[in-house]
């Protein structure tokens, strides 16, 4: 995906109303034209409404009920579950952990993705060498979460490869319990998530880099800008739209990361890696409190809607 800063807006769009004439035929044509975008959007809307909005509305309904799913006749309890959740200490621990996990992951994904993309885009290295490294760099992306969790559990075991390498090279004296010590567990799962997620940024940014016209750089070079200045003055502003979109999506996705955490630490040790996702899962499938679990999900939804609103508004402003 490539983006440039050329201001392209919908203001002069094909569908914009033309000077109206009073004739009914023309008015009909106007109405038809106004419907055109909806025509294009119909398949999307049908899918999203039927398969996403309906279940979400059902979840919102559950969040207002007690004994939902587990009993035949659930009762309406209003916002009780929301109050329970918002006053529960473990919820806020989960929020804090999730923010750390997500924030660090998104920033690291971006930095690593950008660094790798820049290295793979440099003119200093031959095309074939770049192709080899590109292939290696994309590897973490190719595996299902379950296998990523299992692989890293093996590597980070007290008797695993990572500890072996560290002790053999005398970087640490004894084996570190990466995933099972309360001091390191959150960092360890965050690290795994960073490893698994950066290729998404890397490939998108790499594509974005191709889209920056070469003459921008040539002009800058003529002006005497050094590499760092070219990077901050051209590369970053040019990539900004992609970066913002990806960071927003990555943020939303990472807050939901469940399988990776569940299969590596299960939210432990001592609750240090408890995330909103594991917290919600336990409510639903271990305590069978689907009402409370739904309330927790709706809270996440509302926060994301606020984020999405600001994102869309910022985009509008940029246009």
């Amino acid at each position: 995906m490539s983006t440039t800063s050329l201001p392209v807006t919908g203001a002069d769009s094909l569908g914009s109303p033309e000077p109206r004439s009073g004739k009914p035929a023309a008015r009909l044509a106007d109405a038809r034209r106004a419907l055109v975008p909806y025509g294009y959007l119909t398949p999307t809307m049908v899918l999203l409404v039927v398969l996403m909005v309906i279940p979400i509305v059902m979840v919102i309904g559950y969040s207002l009920m007690d004994n939902v799913i587990m009993k035949k006749n659930p009762q309406f309890v209003g916002f009780k579950h929301y109050i329970d959740i918002l006053t529960s200490e473990s919820f806020w621990t989960a929020v804090t952990n999730t923010l750390f996990f997500t924030g660090v992951s998104v920033i690291a994904h971006l930095l690593i993705g950008l660094a790798f993309a820049m290295m793979l885009n440099t003119g200093l290295i031959g095309t074939r060498t770049k192709a080899i490294f590109r292939t290696i760099y994309v590897l973490p992306w190719l595996f299902t979460v379950a296998i990523i969790a299992v692989l890293w559990r093996l590597l980070l075991e007290p008797n695993g490869v990572v500890n072996f390498l560290l002790t053999a090279s005398h970087l640490t004296g004894t084996e570190v319990e990466w995933l099972s010590s309360p001091e390191t567990a959150l960092f360890a799962v965050t690290f795994i998530n960073i490893w698994a997620g950066y290729p998404f940024y890397m490939t998108s940014l790499l594509a974005g880099l191709q889209g920056i016209p070469a003459d921008y750089y040539e002009a800058a070079q003529v002006d005497g800008a050094n590499a760092w200045q070219r990077f901050t003055a051209i590369t970053i502003p040019q990539l900004k739209p992609i970066i913002i979109s990806m960071a927003l999506l990555d943020f939303i996705w990472t807050t939901q990361q469940f399988a990776l955490i569940w299969m590596t630490t299960g939210g432990g040790p001592l609750g240090t890696t408890e995330m909103l996702s594991t917290f919600t899962y336990k409510l639903a499938f271990s305590k069978y409190q689907f009402g409370t679990a739904s309330a927790s999900a709706v809270i996440v939804l509302v926060i994301s809607m606020v984020l999405a609103f600001f994102y869309v508004r910022a985009q509008k402003a940029r246009d």
Binding site: G10, I56, A293, F309, Y311
Partner: peptide, 26 residues
């Protein structure tokens, strides 16, 4: 990208945020 129409912004917000519900609760 190419059309202006009512509810465009709402639609954008919906498209982005429907992904935010934890799948396990859905």
């Amino acid at each position: 990208s190419r059309f202006e129409f009512p509810f465009k912004r709402v639609l954008n917000v919906v498209i982005i945020s429907v992904q935010a519900v934890p799948p396990i609760t859905l």
